[in-house]
Simulated scan of single mutants.
Amino acid sequence: MKIIVFGGTGGVGTHFVADAVAAGHAVTVFARTPCKVAQQGVSIIQG
């Protein structure tokens, strides 16, 4: 499943992104500050 996460650098968002990647989903994180995205294996869109 393809998932886009808004707020993926926050407290809950980081856990959700990690769980989604571990489950094998294609994850895109929409972030103001892309360098804050700690999870590997995700696509990042700055906005």
Rank of each mutant, 00 (worst) to 15 (best):
H25N: 15
G10A: 03
F16I: 14
H15G: 13
M1I: 00
T33S: 13
A18F: 07
A26T: 12
T14R: 11
P34V: 09
T9F: 11
Q40L: 08
K36Y: 10
I4H: 10
S43D: 11
T9V: 06
V12T: 14
A22R: 14
F16N: 07
F6W: 08
Q46I: 08
I44V: 08
G11K: 10
G8L: 03
I44F: 03
T28V: 11
F30S: 13
K2Y: 02
I45A: 07
G8Q: 02
V29C: 04
H15F: 12
D19N: 14
F6G: 10
G24R: 06
V17E: 00
I3R: 01
G47Q: 06
G47M: 05
V21Y: 04
T28K: 03
P34K: 07
V29T: 04
S43H: 11
R32N: 06
K36W: 15
V5L: 04
T14S: 11
F16P: 02
V12I: 15
I44E: 01
A18W: 10
V21G: 04
V29S: 04
T9D: 08
G47I: 05
M1Q: 01
I44D: 01
I44S: 00
K36V: 12
V12C: 13
P34M: 09
M1S: 02
Q39F: 09
G47E: 08
G8D: 02
A26E: 15
H15V: 08
F16M: 14
K2H: 04
G8I: 02
Q40C: 03
C35F: 12
V29L: 08
K2D: 09
G11W: 07
F30V: 13
T9M: 04
T14D: 12
F30R: 07
V42N: 03
C35K: 13
P34G: 07
A22S: 14
G11S: 11
T14P: 04
G11Y: 12
G10C: 03
G13F: 03
G24D: 15
G24V: 06
V5C: 05
A31Y: 03
V21D: 11
V12S: 10
T9Q: 05
K36A: 14
V42Y: 11
V17I: 03
R32C: 02
I44G: 01
Q40F: 03
F16V: 14
V42I: 07
A22F: 06
V29N: 01
Q39S: 07
I45C: 06
G41V: 11
K2L: 02
A31L: 05
M1D: 01
A31S: 10
Q46F: 10
V5R: 00
K2A: 06
S43L: 07
G7A: 07
T14C: 08
V17A: 01
V42E: 02
V12K: 09
A22K: 15
D19Y: 08
H25E: 10
K2T: 06
T9A: 05
K36I: 10
D19A: 15
V12M: 11
Q39G: 12
V5Y: 00
G24N: 12
A18Q: 14
D19F: 04
Q39C: 14
Q40G: 08
V12F: 14
G47V: 07
F16A: 15
